[in-house]
């Protein structure tokens, strides 16, 4: 598998009346061809801003990429001109947004919206573009495509609209699809359909997917690798099995423990993560999770931990993994928390 995208030490800030907010504070990750990377985190952790940066869509003039590289092939997205970016967007990177109700133009026919991207990026006649659009509609599982082609978004249900959004994202056979909470606005049965569709398309076209979500169930269902974000940093990253079976960061563990497990027969009390995420106007100098962490030590408050690697893919940023720290097991026996 070859490397498709590599993000190095990305920092994005926004200027607001309250001061500068550091939404993304040094994020690095990569994605290979044909792979699904899930970026997981809660609201405000910077996951959507990271995706916007990859698309070169950080809102100007308030937002600014302060530092870092986004290497897509041999090009650095942060350094491209507006025109070059427009060539990449839609044709090489496709985007699926969260809300299918607002991401389509209500005054344009579905067909026209799908055709728009094709006409812009590919040298096709209008008729050829229409043929291609019809084919895409069939691919995403819409029946009666000829009729659907000339309907407006309000004539579609939420799940159907999301299929149209996916069709638009796929229009120019992008190598990378960024899906920002693609199923959050949908019902469970429709969510299952859309996830199946994404997996299916990925298999057929060998495209890579960056899936941004807060739903660990969705991650368990489709991801190959996971990056867990908290307060603008990736705190842990690894293959999906490593993250679920052997989490090395207390935040990851906390996330896993705070959702009820349907596959366990007993009713266990949920273990929430106390408190709330830090203020990103003045992010803490140490580990951002220290204030909520049941295992926090003095060093956590003072210094941001380095990356500790456990395997080819698996790393975490937590002082507990430093060989000088006392073991979590010992802390538990000492009675500090019953987290595990």
């Amino acid at each position: 598998m070859s490397r498709l995208l590599e993000v190095n030490d990305l920092k994005v800030s926004f200027r607001t009346y309250g001061g500068e907010i550091q939404a993304v504070r040094g994020v690095s990750f990569y994605i290979d061809e044909g792979e699904t990377l899930a970026i997981v985190g809660e609201s405000g952790c910077g996951k959507s801003v990271t995706a916007q940066a990859v698309m070169g869509m950080v809102p100007v003039p308030h937002g600014k990429v302060k530092n870092g590289q986004i290497l897509f092939g041999d090009r650095d997205i942060t350094k491209l001109s507006k025109k070059k970016l427009q060539q990449i967007r839609g044709s090489e990177i496709g985007m699926i947004f969260q809300d299918p109700m607002t991401s389509l133009n209500p005054t344009m026919k579905i067909g026209t919206q799908i055709r728009e991207g094709i006409l812009k990026h590919q040298k096709l006649s209008k008729n050829e573009a229409k043929e291609k659009a019809l084919e895409l509609l069939r691919l995403v599982g819409i029946s009666d495509v000829e009729k659907r082609y000339s309907q407006y978004p309000h004539e579609f249900s939420g799940g159907m609209r999301q299929r149209v959004v996916i069709a638009i994202a796929l229009a120019c056979d992008p190598k990378l699809i960024i899906a920002d909470e693609p199923t959050t606005a949908l019902d469970v049965t429709i969510q299952a359909q859309i996830l199946d569709l994404l997996k299916d398309i990925q298999k057929k076209r060998n495209s890579s997917i960056i899936l941004i979500t807060h739903d660990l169930g969705v991650v368990a269902e489709v991801a190959d690798r996971v990056a867990v974000m908290y307060a603008g940093v990736v705190v842990e990253s690894g293959t999906v099995d490593e993250i679920f079976e052997n989490p090395k960061h207390p935040y990851t563990l906390g996330l896993l423990k705070s959702v009820p497990n349907l596959d366990s027969p007993d009713k266990e009390r949920l273990i929430p993560i106390d408190g709330s995420p830090p203020d990103l106007f003045a992010p803490p100098t140490g580990c951002p999770f220290a204030a909520r962490c049941p295992f926090a030590m003095e060093v956590c408050v003072m210094h941001m931990p380095d990356k500790e690697t456990f395997s080819d893919h698996h790393y975490a940023k937590c002082w507990l993994n430093d060989n000088r720290a006392i073991k979590v097991e010992e802390m538990i026996t000492a009675g500090s928390e019953q987290l595990v």
Partner: peptide, 18 residues
Amino acid sequence: AIPVSAPKLRGTRERIVL
């Protein structure tokens, strides 16, 4: 249709697609 709770259970739930 509920997503599985852990990656190792992937595919164990037989999905009835509506």
